[in-house]
């Protein structure tokens, strides 16, 4: 047998091994998602009585979905919209603020810059439990608790975004900026037209990171909001979960609601994946 052949065989074995390993990993990552898909077609009784990875004898997905969106006058729909509102607006403003700040820190020298940056980095490390309650009392002094603003405003701050933005702004070649200056462009113009365009991947990364962070946030809305019509999905589903002790149908609603909310966000993430990934490339390696 020639050497060439042998190498080809090795390659084939390698290919099969890699594919098998990936298939195994895929099964692992899909398992809970498959489970929730099947579970969302079941009645509360069947949820516990039938096998987890197949349908029950009487699938009722459509009925469950109808109940999900009609329960308490369609409040689930409001929760989805609220989550989109908090995450969308919060992440948008957070991105603008942190990109500008990171850029300012990277491109200019000013007094106390490193101390300022150090404090911001410290912010990444502060646990949410430290901030939530004190924030309630502070926001209450300006009568904001219980409003959309009480969740939106704190979500608009992303210290991690400043960190990423600083690194990326630093990577913009000095010559490009200087050339723009010689052309007579002002600092704000340079930032808003030239710099941001070069930083698009980083900007997308910051936006999506903050979007997911807000989407997953549980403690802040729990502390701030009373009115269920302003709840985001996470809080709403937890509310229903606590009601399973009165009416078991809520168990099914929680499962179907989880499936729907997971797929809304997965849909958003996957459709933006190419930009997300591009952002990561730059995010982690460019200094």
């Amino acid at each position: 047998m020639s050497r060439e052949h042998e190498r080809e065989r090795n390659v084939d074995i390698g290919r099969i091994g890699v594919t098998l390993a990936l298939l195994f990993a895929a099964f692992y990552f899909l398992l809970p998602i498959l489970w929730v898909l099947f579970a969302s077609t079941k009645s509360p009784g069947d949820l516990f009585a039938t096998g987890g990875l197949w349908f029950s004898d009487e699938p009722q997905f459509i009925y469950n979905l109808q109940r999900l969106f009609s329960e308490s006058n369609g409040i689930f729909g409001a929760w989805v919209l609220n989550s989109l509102l908090y995450s969308g607006v919060g992440a948008l403003v957070a991105t603008v603020l942190s990109v500008a700040c990171g850029y300012g820190i990277a491109r200019y020298r000013f007094f106390g810059k490193e101390a300022f940056f150090g404090a911001i980095l410290g912010g990444v490390l502060v646990p949410a439990t430290v901030i939530a309650l004190p924030l309630y009392f502070l926001l209450n002094t300006v009568n904001l608790t219980g409003t959309y603003w009480s969740v939106l405003l704190p979500s608009m701050v992303s210290p991690f975004g400043v960190y990423l933005a600083r690194i990326h702004s630093g990577a913009i070649p000095e010559e490009v900026i200087e050339a723009a200056r010689l052309d007579g462009a002002g600092e704000v113009r340079i930032f808003s037209t030239i710099a941001t365009r070069m930083m698009v991947p980083a900007i997308v990364t910051i936006f999506l990171f903050q979007f997911v962070t807000i989407w997953n946030n549980y403690l802040l809305p729990l502390v701030m909001l009373n009115d269920t019509s302003k709840f985001p999905i996470t809080l709403g589903l937890t509310l229903w979960n606590s009601q399973t002790q009165r009416d078991p149908y809520f168990y099914t609603l929680v499962v179907v609601g989880s499936a729907v909310s997971a797929f809304v966000l997965i849909g958003i993430m996957v459709s933006l994946q190419r930009f997300w990934k591009a952002g990561m490339t730059a995010g982690a390696t460019k200094g």
């Binding site: 990552f29 899909l30 998602i33 996470t234 966000l265």
Partner: peptide, 12 residues
Amino acid sequence: IFFMPYGVPGVI
């Protein structure tokens, strides 16, 4: 597929 779970909130 590997990335999907990132979209599922911790509670869920």
